[in-house]
Amino acid sequence: MTSMRFSPKALMSSNTYAPAIEWKLLLPMEGSWRCFHDGRSVCNDEPGAHLRLFGRRSLAIALFVACSALSVGLFLFEIYSPEYGFRMPWIQTEFDPRSQVQS
């Protein structure tokens, strides 16, 4: 996704609908700057602006993917243990006729 930085005046005057381009605010939150997202505008002084926390979505997603990959790797490391891996010998899976309920 493309991110572009523009002057506040240009952002304020722009009303072009451009769904493929994300007009992202990369500058400080002061003033009445505008952020265009899928053709909609959100002012900085609106309450929703608080959620524009730390910038780039792509970076956040990349970190999420890296964290997930590390977690999956650690999980696989855990379950491939030769002692208590997939075999799970502590779980009795053989049929025990004594446990059968007589009707």
Binding site: H37, V42, E46, P47, G48, H50, L51, L53
Partner: peptide, 24 residues
């Protein structure tokens, strides 16, 4: 959901902001 963003609901937006910061 594409027509109405969170900013259109100030009360929920404030709660969501606080919760997001708390989770972070």
């Amino acid at each position: 959901l594409r027509e109405a963003e969170l900013a259109d609901f100030p009360a929920i937006s404030k709660i969501a902001s606080v919760l997001s910061l708390y989770v972070i």
